[in-house]
């Protein structure tokens, strides 16, 4: 998407990125033009505090990564911000509007759209149907107008045109009529991102967009994420792959044990001693067997999360 003459949106994103230069490398740092501001967000499961975020701002028009070791509360924080989970306490705003307490669908309609760690394509719907579902404000989605095609036919044609353009951009146009369930893991990720763009979001929140994507597709997906920024959207994403984080993010936020422990540009964050400690844990000088155990536990926890996703799905 590298164009010779920068568009207005690209200009804006450059300005937004320059705005980050003066921002402190501290947890909860103030940003010049925040799109999301969260305060004192707490989510507990039984006795365990999964999320405890004191203050967080996300800069508009840039790509912000959220990283942290397993079980740091990244996905839970995502869920809370997008209305998929209820916090025990806290308030947060999107584009200056307080949105705590809103349902997930209301949050999405405001322009804050997310994807999921375990890709949620609608298996027994075709790729184009998946896309069309993303379009907002469809009059044909009202029960009173649904049976009368003339009332929504034109809008449907417009949406289809837009969906086809997006499919082409994400190289899914060949799969247009296939069931989404027949796509490969990487194609599903692409479809999910493309579908979220049908909502015409201001902020796209991607939960581990690169997980389970083969290296060939990874590059193209990276390109697509960057292109979102060029189009003037804000991207906030959870990722484990440090190469990806270093490659595309303008700003990195690190979570551990529910708290934000560090913020800054990728290079600064990755050399931060707090981050290294958090990743290696308190055990990093202990015997090997303990590390083994940690590895097993981490693997198990991932499986659990996968199973839970599956359960809430089935």
């Amino acid at each position: 998407m590298a164009a010779d003459t920068p568009t207005a949106a690209e200009d804006m994103s450059t300005v937004a990125r320059q705005g980050l230069v003066d921002v402190e490398h501290q947890p909860g740092a103030k940003k010049p033009d925040p799109i999301v501001v969260a305060d004192k967000v707490v989510r507990k499961f039984g006795g365990l505090t999964a999320v405890d975020v004191e203050h967080l701002e996300i800069q508009r028009g840039v790509i912000t990564a959220l990283i942290g070791p397993n079980g740091a509360g990244k996905t839970t924080f995502f869920n809370v911000l997008t209305g998929f989970d209820r916090p025990d306490d806290g308030k947060w705003s999107f584009g200056g509007k307080d949105i705590q307490g809103l349902s997930a669908y209301q949050v999405a309609r405001l322009g804050m759209v997310r994807t999921f760690q375990l890709t949620k394509v609608l298996s027994r719907l075709s790729v184009i149907e998946n896309m069309l579902l993303g379009a907002t404000g469809q009059s044909g989605e009202s029960i009173w107008q649904a049976m009368l095609r003339p009332l929504w036919g034109q809008q449907e044609r417009d949406n289809t045109e837009r969906a086809d353009a997006l499919l082409k951009r994400f190289q899914l146009d060949a799969k247009r009529e296939d069931f989404a369930g027949s796509l490969s893991g990487g194609q599903r990720k692409l479809l999910e991102v493309a579908r979220s763009l049908m909502v015409e979001p201001e902020l796209v929140m991607l939960d581990e967009p690169m997980a389970g994507v083969n290296p060939a597709l990874k590059q193209s997906l990276l390109g697509h994420v960057k292109s979102l920024r060029e189009d003037g959207m804000t991207v906030f994403f959870v990722e484990h792959d440090m190469d990806v984080v270093r490659d595309i993010s303008d700003w990195v936020i690190v979570m551990a044990q529910g708290r934000i422990i560090s913020e800054g540009p990728p290079e600064a964050v990755m050399s931060d001693q707090r981050v290294i400690d958090a990743y290696l844990g308190a055990h990093h000088d202990a015997a090997l067997s303990v590390e083994d155990e940690d590895a097993i536990l981490a693997a198990a926890r991932e499986e659990i999360e996968a199973a839970e996703e599956q359960e809430s799905h089935g």
């Binding site: 097993i296 693997a299 198990a300 926890r301 499986e303 659990i304 996968a306 199973a307």
Partner: peptide
């Protein structure tokens, strides 16, 4: 409680 975790242990 958790089949996956139990299996892993």
């Amino acid at each position: 409680d958790n089949p996956a975790l139990a299996s892993a242990s």
